[in-house]
Amino acid sequence: MDTNPLDNASPGHGPVVALFVTCLADLLRPSVAFNSIKLLEQTGCRVVVPLQQTCCGQPAYNSGDYESIIPLAKQLIAALEPADYVVIPSGSCAGMICHHYPQLLDGDWRDRALQVAAKTFEITSFLSDILPIKRGHRAAIKLPSVTYHDSCAGLRELGIKEQPRQLLQELCDTELSELPQTEVCCGFGGTFCAKMPEISAKMVHDKVHSAQTTGATILAGGDLGCLLNIAGRARREGVDLEVRHITELLCGDLDGPAIGEGE
């Protein structure tokens, strides 16, 4: 049993950061979580991964099942609250915890949700605004040309726009070419893409082709939902586009296959 949730923190004296891995990274792209730990440790944090975590409950919540996810929200709040900070490699899961948990809960639990919300950050925001990560004397990571997809929840719920771009500039040596209509949704929308696949396909088709017009080799983003959608569509259309989570770029972890690519 995990008696003390902080037991598994990495050694040191820095603030304790609880990493909420997110279900998509846990299941489909563990490298996002490993790279997040690496980046956080570079800032001197002690990283802990609470073992009681699973999913933040967005699929049910966004589909309108508020009641079922209340116990799940409480379980996650209890798992995360002992840490000094909570960091999440996803804008939409961070938005869920920061904005939607407090709205869902009442009384004491609402206060606890607000306290957790106040110390919860999406990873690029944490590495820019809270404990800025510096390249120091290390050489910049050399990357091919990159375009960046702003995910809607990160952009509009958390105001994440400059942070990932600044980090790419600070840690990596690359040309960033912006997507046309970068603030338009890629059509993922959680269960939306499965409930209304044809409309979603039109949106993600547009996104894949916008990415092509930038001439960039890599499309990076901060949310796996969008990236799985974009990579999956690019694969289906036979479009050559390397889709990766921003944490992979910031760690120079480009050896393994990109999202949707074979070994």
């Binding site: 489909l28 893409c193 696949p197 993600v204 959608n229 990579a231 569509r233």
Partner: peptide, 10 residues
């Protein structure tokens, strides 16, 4: 129906 499903990394 509209896109591939990326294989889990491991």
């Amino acid at each position: 129906s509209q896109r591939d499903f990326p294989t889990p990394q491991g």
